[in-house]
Amino acid sequence: MIILAENPELAMWGKWLGDGLGTNADGSTAGNAIFGIFLSLVVYLIGQWLFKISKGFFLFQPLFVGMVLGIIVLVILAKTFGTSVETFYRSAYKPGGDIIFWFLNPATIAFAVPLYRRNDIVKKFWLEIILALIIGLSLSLLVIYEAAKLIGLDTVGIASMLPQAATTAIAMPIANAIGGIGAVTATACILNSVIIYALGDWLVKFFRIDKDPIGAGLGLGTAGHTVGSAKAVQLGSIQGSMASIAVVIISIVVDLLVPPFASLVGLR
């Protein structure tokens, strides 16, 4: 393994992976992806199992359980091999994790299908959809800015919180551009998804958003990104379509709105 060669303390792990857990197509063992894929599958399946036997307890959502268990396993293994969690993550987990992560590309494109299935609603309400996303996001930015200031984040932290409505690939460079930390914004985007995935159904009922399928869909797509859209698809075809369109448009709205907002409140 290429990266492991630079970290002699991981040589034992590398030997075990290389000798015991299969080889790549060209016969090499460099950057072996099996551990990352295997760990992701196992922790997610444990999450699904826990969710089933707890009869749907919200903290046992498979994505949340998988994420927490995966981190715990990496921390324990890193301690065992006497290296930092980050080094261990990069050398042992990331090769496999990246392969799964790549499939988010076609999975995101797939949301064009639920979007098109309710093209009638899109054609009829396109102006309301775009206006709702622009106005809704502007108001949200104000609240997020005030909340972050109140809770005591520094300017770097506040700047990192503002672009989180966009998908990670848009939010990260914007955060960097307005003086935030891209990694923190990426963390926020993942937490958005996890929160909506775990609490989405309850929040939609609690705030009585479920009465209006268009509003519910747009809200879920904005707050929960593609995971929110997957949730919305389960609620109904209009919700799914609206959440899919929200993911696309909100990203472009963030692109255009967040940098001027940041200079308006004096973050830059």
Binding site: G36, L39, S40, L41, V43, Y44, Q61, P62, L63, F64, G66, M67, G70, I71, L74, V75, V85, E86, Y89, R90, Y93, G96, G97, D98, I100, F101, F103, L104, P106, A107, I109, A110, F111, A112, V113, P114, T168, I181, A183, V184, A186, T187, I190, S193, V194, Y197, T226, V227, S229, A230, V233
Partner: peptide
């Protein structure tokens, strides 16, 4: 294929969540 990919989306986000392991210092 689209419906299949959408049904997988929560699983596909597991590596993105585990990625937090690399940023534990910020947290």
């Amino acid at each position: 294929f689209a419906d299949f990919m959408i049904s997988l989306i929560a699983f596909l986000f597991v590596p993105a969540g585990v990625q937090l392991a690399a940023n534990l210092d910020i947290l």
